[in-house]
Design a protein around this nucleic acid. Sequence first.
DNA 1: CGACATCTTGACTACAGTCAATACTAGTGG
DNA 2: CCACTAGTATTGACTGTAGTCAAGATGTCG
Lengths: 245, 245
Amino acid sequence: MAINISKFDVQCADCPIRHRAVCSKCEVDELASLEDMKFYRTFEAGQTIAWAGDNLTFVASVVHGVATLGQTLEDGRTQMLGLLLPSDFIGRPWRKTSAYDVCAITDVTLCCFRRKPFEDMLIRTPHIGERLLEMTMDELDAAREWMLILGRKTAREKIASLLTIIVHREQAPDVPRANAPVTIDLPLTREAMSDYLGLTLETVSRQISALKREGIILLEGKRRVVVPDIARLLAQTGSDAISHL
Amino acid sequence: MAINISKFDVQCADCPIRHRAVCSKCEVDELASLEDMKFYRTFEAGQTIAWAGDNLTFVASVVHGVATLGQTLEDGRTQMLGLLLPSDFIGRPWRKTSAYDVCAITDVTLCCFRRKPFEDMLIRTPHIGERLLEMTMDELDAAREWMLILGRKTAREKIASLLTIIVHREQAPDVPRANAPVTIDLPLTREAMSDYLGLTLETVSRQISALKREGIILLEGKRRVVVPDIARLLAQTGSDAISHL
DNA sequence: CGACATCTTGACTACAGTCAATACTAGTGG
DNA sequence: CCACTAGTATTGACTGTAGTCAAGATGTCG
């Protein structure tokens, strides 16, 4: 597992996730402390960042790229537990090992902090803890929304829900414009979608074909989806309101 | 919805959840502030504490009893998202409405704080925020464990997992004794179990009957379960390690 | 005892899983 | 440039698990 340590010396002030990551509430002096501690790591698409149970000596923010959080049963069944996008946080303070598998699905850059110094900083710097609390609560809401999808929705509803969630994330939520067509690039293979939704990849494929056949979505290539009318897609999700991640 | 405001004036020092709840890290002076703010509320078994979308003017700790966190699709399908046991926290600071249905399944006593003063206190008192962060992270881990159960396990594995989790909670985790028989009282009806596991109540009933037929569990009445050999039950869960809630 | 909740069991159905063949796409090397 | 391969996606035929509908059993409380 080759790990590239790339020290760009990106200034926090210029950081693309400065205003959303765990550091977003920090004052200039606090940011300076973090700046001293931080180091970058990059992972290639497909690389595993950590296996469940691995020692994790750092915590980190995703700067670029997409990673997944997942868990595996001994017979190989896997369930994806979350998508990690830029500004999302990896690791848990005061816990030595990773509870989940973390995999880079695109090339990923992490802004890392060794765990112990970060924990000390967390105690000394309430702004970090406050932001981490907010982010953790958002994750919890997202996880609970997924529980409803996993436990109670049909295959078709699951696919529609996933697409809806991705639409809401890609298109910044500021403009809730009526029914202009929306194009999304799926960052996921059919198999990754199936791991996310608790389905098989064949079922995912069939449901996507069905939605296409009915004109609810259009495909441009395999990974690019056009939604001509979001309302029609929403009607397939089984619930009117889908929120975040 | 009759709400009883019972002002026992229980001293925090004597509180049964003093050392596990959101206040557990507080110093005496901090505790005194909380003591000034708090008020008790009780709900009868079966009562709804809040519906999803309701205005929630308070946050609270569960002192006595068991409540559930759930979500409902418009056609009536419901998914339980968590069990709230004594010391668990209800509500989310800085959010005005409840994101979920909260129902008392036994008589419940809550230690409540009006939201706004609690938010102010949270900023002034890092000890509270630290504890709330810990608790939220635990909830997140529990929710993610459930995602795996909901998404990837068979009906039989789901039932075995639920029983295992309840065993681990009832029996304090201190004694990991080998294979002494364990008795548990289910706080849940078959329907509640089905809502938890994303199954129908008929399937729950059938699987429990099957486990009984095979001698993996014994029933004393409908709600009391004896597990003669935990290892055999664990072997039915599909995963070797089940952690918490 | 009767009324109502809850639970169990059976017969049948349907949705999604499994296994397998085929198609599409992109990348590699002759 | 084309042939070959490997990874990804689609589709079909069949199976099996859990859902649905319904009857009856058990249990609890007035």
